[in-house]
Design a protein around this nucleic acid. Sequence first.
RNA 1: GCCGAAGUGGCGGAAUUGGUAGACGCGCUAGGUUCAGGACUUAGUGGGUGUAGGCCUGUGCGGGUUCGAGUCCCGCCUUCGGCACCA
Length: 859
Amino acid sequence: MRKYDPQKIELKWQSFWDEKGYFRVSEDKTKQKYYLLEMFPYPSGKIHMGHVRNYAIGDVVARYKKMRGFNVLHPMGWDAFGMPAENAAIENKTHPAKWTYDNIDYMRTQLKRMGFSYDWDRELATCRPEYYRWEQLVFLKMFKKGLAYKKKTYVNWCDLCQTVLANEQVVDGCCWRHPGQEVKLREMDSWFLKITDYTKELLEYCDRLPGWPEKVLTMQRNWIGESHGAIIRFPMVDFDHTIEVFTTRQDTIFGATFMCFAPEHPLVKELTEGTPYEEEVREFVEKTLKVDAFMRTADFTVKEGVFTGRYCLNPVTSEKMPIYVANFVLYEYGTGAVMAVPTHDQRDFEFAKKYGLPLRVVIKPKDAELIEEEMLEAYIEEGILVNSGPFDGMVNTAALDRIAEYLESIEMGYKTINYRLKDWGISRQRYWGAPIPIIYCPACGVVPVPEDQLPVLLPLDLDLKEGGKSPLPFEPSFYETACPLCGEPARREADTMDTFVESSWYFDRYASPRYEHGPFDEDKVAYWLPVDQYIGGIEHAILHLLYSRFYTKVLRDMGYLTSDEPFTNLLTQGMVCKETFRCSEHGYLYPEEVQEGRCIHCGSEIEIGSSVKMSKSTKNVIDPQKLIDRYGSDTVRMFCLFASPPERDLEWSEEGVEGSWRFLNRLWRLISENREHLFAVRPYDGSSSLTPVLKDMYGKTHETIKKVTEDIEERFHFNTAISAIMELFNKVNQFLNTVDEPSEVDWTVIREAVDTMLMLLHPIVPHITEELWAASGNTNSLAVLSWPTYTEKALEKETRLVVVQVNGKVRSRIEVPVAYDDGEIQDQALHDERILNFTNGKEIKRVIVVQKKLVNIVV
RNA sequence: GCCGAAGUGGCGGAAUUGGUAGACGCGCUAGGUUCAGGACUUAGUGGGUGUAGGCCUGUGCGGGUUCGAGUCCCGCCUUCGGCACCA
């Protein structure tokens, strides 16, 4: 046989699998289904190491499950709408559609070159009308159910994106796509999806997803942000309104001495209009809103506010409380207004001190007094209620419920739960997205596009505008239409949907991707869904994974789906990381711009930075295509799986890739050099008796099957699975190195070991294993073969190793017949020569024998 | 501040239920092969110490439980991730 030439054999087997159609699946009720899905890629241009790792992990599981007899659905598609396409199109003077479809074509060949076992017949791209028409249909159904609505409100705006962002897309007060680009609040008309209708279920089901990492569930729980408290009503003085406030501290109600509004609160304008305070309040509101979200919400920002000239009444003390507008009150949280209790809340305390507002202690420590004038900070510990009427003397935490009930009895409030989660803003003022199927008629108002007029096509014959502004509102051929109700001229909605809408249901569409009579063929969806195993990056812990859960529940309630949750099991793989190179002249450098520790542009010494996620901005990227060209995809796959367990970050290592390459070459040589011998015998079947060395190899083979099966099945720990196979390989190799002329029986045992290795390695490195499998005389394809099973008999041994400790320290290891019981083992251990050195002349206090594995002698 | 995860050789990482710490791979050292390099191959490789059999020590730090602790308990430290003027 020739030497290992991955380029040749990999292409050969890829077309073999393709021609045989091994990975095309249909609903087969006689088999157990297994839906394995990796997060679909954005067609950014070419695949990166993150994709390779994600899809290598998924492919092992898919191929393994197939070998285990499951009917495996393993689809692939493209998350194809989104801004990068527009930006690239403007830059390269092309069209987002062309850019996107070209990228898809290239990336598809790359994925095929990796040998992933996808059912390519199910491929979908979300930018195709055949896909987004159903998204528009579901939107209309949501609109009719009141789950999609439009409102004018303050939204997050990114200047670079030229669009609105959802709350989930704001990270540290900045745009998620543009770190450092501060998000501004802007008052706009926007479409929202009512995810808050499902808040409780989304939260409750966090406890019913045992297959999800605790980390992701915690992040989702945090994001939903449940807090138990009460709504309290404050009647206003000389103004016909009652202010409602949410608080978790209703126990402090007797100490509430003033009220604060968020600057965005619509009531602020009403309260001050035409009063002497109007001007000052307006100035303050404007000034505060100009400050970006991050600075405004930083805890070092000084608490500031301005008096509105209005008062309300404390519902339990009837005391007059001045109403302020304050920068620290968040409009998005609670009701946008807070009751201020300066004695027991630090923010309120600072605010009261600054503006000379009254303080009243209502909680005191158990064994001390608190005097308002002497307080230097708010008292926030547990304590005893004082100045609280009928509640005096109670422990404040115990009084929470009682005070809520009291407020309820006087109709001044009620117990409630508040959530941080807000409705999902999906309007985007961008071009490359799915049009929102709505028409505005001067006479009839907001009118949904009739379902039989779907899809509302995104026009492709447009020129993009510099800076990213959408051309849709400027394109009469798009926005000019007739009202479906009255037939008069009307205007189309020109906003498109957030691309996260497309990715919230694509996994359902894979069940029937070509279905033309609705979003889903219900029988097929019922067969395949939910996804049994979902695999992707942790960065989607709240965004995509929360939206998808919400959509699943909406689609279920519309009757499309029967499952409550989209993904039964979730694996969040770690990032691929690499150190960075930096030149004082040229900034970050690509690895190829560095030679012998120097910048190839200026020759100055480079600075090596710590290992961070591979990204274009830090230029610490490795192009997987170059690796494939050099080593083949099997080596790349193996490296990704061997270097670390999937949930952990993967540290890039050139030497590590070399190691995988060397192993595959050794495997190739082992089989090609012994091909005739292997070819001539059948694998050992366990019937004839074996020499101890051969019995050892036979046992090791079956141990390896057990270990690898458990590692893949139970833990997805492919790194240890590969280690185990390497151990078996080393054993076979060592045998061949020490025995000059192996006998026929020897070869049968070797053949079994080699066959087993190829079967176990197949999901990891499918091409080389197919080639070697065929080369050693097998006629069937590994891709459709059954996963090997181990026999208990093979694991049985004649002797076992027992560790002997004296006072917990290992002093000897003895080989005993397996038939020995604990007493016989103990006896032999006590008479062991090495052990006698430690026990001679000492009193043996105690001897512990553990599971025939270990003896500990206490002297 | 709250919540979560993690800390093991020169490096990536093993040790699944408390029972041989460092599997497997990389790197390194020495030898073989080679004109040389690479590739391949043999042996070694936590630290300390001894001519040697060996001994001592060792899983972030300090305690504890146990015959026995990387693993369990208590108290810290560090790193990473999430949430956070959340009322």
